[in-house]
Every structure is written in structure tokens, then in C-alpha cells.
Amino acid sequence: MILRSHTGAKYRFDPGALCLELTTTGGPGEFRRFEVLHTPADLAAWVARSRLSPTPDLDIRQVEVEAARTFRDALFRAATARASGVEPQRGDLDVINRTAGHPPLTPAIGPDGQRTWTATATGTQLLATVARDAVDLLTGEYAHRIRVCSGERCHLVYVDTSRPGRRRWCSMEHCGNQHKVRALRERRDEKG
């Protein structure tokens, strides 16, 4: 995904899981100020940027956008709890499970051999697909590798799929680079 920092700089961010891509659209509490899911078109635009490409034909209703925000907030809290070594709240897991309980998008192989989707899908099917990915992440082999970026003002959530399992930053070109620049300045100031 291509994200934009608070300064306007663009950078690449790979959260390592489809479900965590949704957490870049806003969040609960203090993260509400970053909300971008207001209309069905906003949710469709997120899908177009996600790893669900090619984008399925979607028929999204406003109530499904509201459900997307509720699910996203529950996922954000559950993932950050897991990153902190704490068990997620039962209510958040209930939201994730309820969302995952609906029929998902149905993939197919197109005439060109590429993935496509069988029919126009609802927002509920879209959310079920993302929620099933969340269930797989939160219960799978990488559940212990869910992390929150170590950047000073960054709260992006990702799953560390690196072989050594030592990823600290949402993006080396953004938060990792900022950390290196700060550390270099501190070393120069100590010598100066």
C-alpha cells in the first residue's frame, strides 16, 4: 500500500495481511481523526488499493460502511492487544467472529488465468472475507508476530513475516529512516 505521512510524504507500507490493511483507514478513540470510511465509495476505494486486486464489482450500502468501521475498530483493538501480549477483549472477538460468519467473496479463475470474482458482491461479503483473514491471523502461526510500529508518533499495525522476526518499523523508508536520522543527530550532538 502507498500511504501518506502527516508531512505529505508518500511511502510504502506492507502490513503483511489483508485485514491489517483495513486498519489504515482510521480507528477507535484518538485514531477517529484519521477516518476515511464515510461512504460506500470510500470503502470501494479502499478495496481498490488492497490486496484483493483485481477489485470485485461491489454493491455497498451505507449500513455496510458503518459495519466496516465497527469491525475495523474491533480488529484494531484486538491486533494491538495481541501485539502487547494481552488477550483481546471478548466483545472485539465477538464482532470479528460475527463478521466472519457471513458468506465471503467468491474467487474464480478468469479466462486469462488470473483471479477474478464470480459476481457482484455485497459489502457484507467483502467484510466477511476480511474478517476471515483476521481470524486466520489472530489464531495462526504469526499471531505472536503482530506488531505496532516503533516510530515515535506511528501506530500502524503489521504482522512481522520476516525470517528473523525482528521488524520494528511500519516502513524502513518512513519510520525506520526517521529513527536513523534522529539517532545520527543525537550522536553528532553528543560529540559536538
Rank of each mutant, 00 (worst) to 15 (best):
M1H: 09
I2T: 15
I2N: 15
I2G: 12
I2W: 10
R4D: 07
H6R: 14
H6N: 13
Y11P: 11
D14C: 02
C19F: 01
L20K: 00
L20A: 02
E21P: 03
T23V: 11
T23E: 02
G26W: 06
P28G: 12
F31E: 08
F31W: 09
R32P: 01
R33N: 03
R33C: 00
R33L: 00
F34H: 13
F34Y: 12
L37T: 07
L37N: 06
P40R: 05
A41Y: 06
A41G: 14
D42N: 07
D42P: 01
D42A: 06
L43M: 09
A44I: 11
V47N: 04
L52M: 08
L52T: 07
P54Q: 12
P56A: 10
D57T: 14
D59F: 05
I60S: 05
I60E: 01
A67W: 01
A67Y: 01
A68F: 00
R69L: 02
R72T: 04
L75C: 02
L75T: 03
R77D: 02
A79S: 06
A79E: 02
T80C: 00
T80H: 04
T80P: 00
T80W: 01
A81N: 02
A81D: 02
R82W: 00
R82S: 00
A83S: 03
S84F: 06
S84G: 11
R90P: 00
G91L: 07
G91M: 06
D92Q: 04
D94Y: 12
I96T: 00
N97A: 15
N97Q: 12
R98M: 11
T99Q: 00
T99M: 00
H102A: 15
H102R: 11
H102W: 14
P104M: 09
L105N: 05
T106Q: 12
A108K: 14
A108E: 13
I109M: 14
P111N: 09
D112K: 08
D112C: 11
G113Q: 06
R115P: 06
W117A: 09
T118A: 14
A119N: 13
T120G: 13
A121T: 08
T122L: 06
T122R: 11
T122K: 09
T129W: 03
V130R: 00
A134M: 05
A134P: 01
D136M: 01
L138V: 01
L138T: 03
L138H: 02
G140S: 07
E141W: 04
E141L: 13
Y142V: 03
A143L: 02
I146S: 03
I146D: 00
I146V: 11
V148F: 09
E152R: 15
C154Q: 10
L156Y: 10
Y158Q: 08
Y158F: 13
V159C: 05
V159P: 11
V159F: 03
D160N: 05
T161C: 09
R163A: 14
R163T: 12
G165K: 03
R166A: 10
R167G: 05
R168F: 05
C170D: 03
H174M: 07
C175T: 13
Q178A: 15
H179W: 11
H179G: 14
H179S: 15
V181G: 10
V181C: 12
R182Y: 06
L184M: 12
L184P: 08
E186A: 15
E186L: 14
R187L: 13
R188D: 08
R188F: 11
D189M: 11
E190G: 14
